[in-house]
Design a binder for these strands. Structure first.
Length: 278
DNA sequence: GGTGAGCGC
């Protein structure tokens, strides 16, 4: 396959006077099928997001703000040291590059940088990245409003979260109690699933539909996280058979994937196949 | 049909 020389960015009208543009990354799509290349972005990003870590100072964990990137002129007051202004974004398609990401958030006018994490050898996107905003307030607003909304040019929703800044695990309030939800119709989104449960259980923290990473399509199951163990337990019986979109859900205990507060032992979860008589 | 993904490659 021929690789587009000088990167994948189609310059339509941006000045982009910098020729460092080409030396940035040796994009190699050797193991990739030809990417779709839709006209996805609405705006050309300024060159600054292309900066490589080579010229930034050594990591200064959380002491000083250190604006490593030229901040936009209108940037509201610099954030204080402990403010997280970076969002993590996941479920990215392989063809989604920095340009695409930037275009997604350019309307905020406060994107300082976007970065997609790539595999060193293959150059392939790891499917997640980071977006740095000028202020925490903006980052927060983006988190609230974009999360769960449709991404441009694809049947897929934004998956955003706060970036955990190294040591800080500010995973908020306490443990999660998760349930597995299966038999979901393909059109059920994180949001719908979450709301379906939140209507009845106030401690619902979030929901996630598991999607195929290559296609972005739902695999027909997902997870709902509760803050309250009682509600989780109740939901496991009460919500069984309840409709979400066009189909009745099947709910059960979730395997405790990572840490979590799941109280199930490794094989106890298979007891979920027998209906609990209450 | 089925038990994720996800923190700086």
């Amino acid at each position: 396959m021929m690789q587009p020389a000088g990167g994948m960015v189609q310059q339509q009208m941006a000045p982009a006077p910098m020729d460092q543009h080409q030396q940035t990354q040796p994009q190699q799509w050797t193991v990739m099928p030809p990417p779709p290349q839709p006209q996805y972005y609405q705006a050309q990003p300024p060159p600054m997001w292309n900066q490589q870590p080579s010229q930034i100072p050594p990591p200064v964990p959380q002491s000083v703000p250190q604006p490593q990137y030229p901040a936009p002129a209108a940037a509201p007051q610099p954030a204080s040291a402990d403010e997280i202004r970076t969002l993590w974004i996941g479920d990215l398609q392989y063809w989604m590059d920095e340009n695409y990401l930037f275009g997604c958030f350019v309307s905020t006018g406060e994107v300082l940088s976007v970065k997609i994490i790539r595999n060193k050898q293959t150059g392939q996107s790891e499917g997640y990245g980071f977006i740095d905003f000028a202020t925490r307030a903006t980052a927060e607003r983006v988190l609230q409003t974009y999360n769960g909304q449709m991404m441009p040019n694809i049947e897929q929703t934004f998956r955003l979260n706060w970036a955990t800044c190294g040591s800080g695990e500010r995973r908020d309030d306490g443990p999660d109690y998760t349930i597995f939800v299966g038999d979901l119709a393909s059109d059920v989104t994180d949001y719908l699933l979450q709301e379906t449960f939140k209507n009845r259980y106030s401690s619902v923290k979030g929901a996630k539909i598991v999607a195929d990473r290559l296609t972005g399509r739902s695999k027909g199951y997902g997870f709902v996280r509760f803050g309250d163990l009682n509600e989780q337990t109740r939901a496991m019986t009460e919500m069984n058979g309840v409709y979400c979109s066009s189909r009745p859900m099947r709910v059960g205990p979730a395997a405790n994937k990572k840490g979590g507060a799941q109280q199930y032992s490794s094989n106890e979860r298979f007891a979920g196949t027998i209906k609990i008589v209450s």
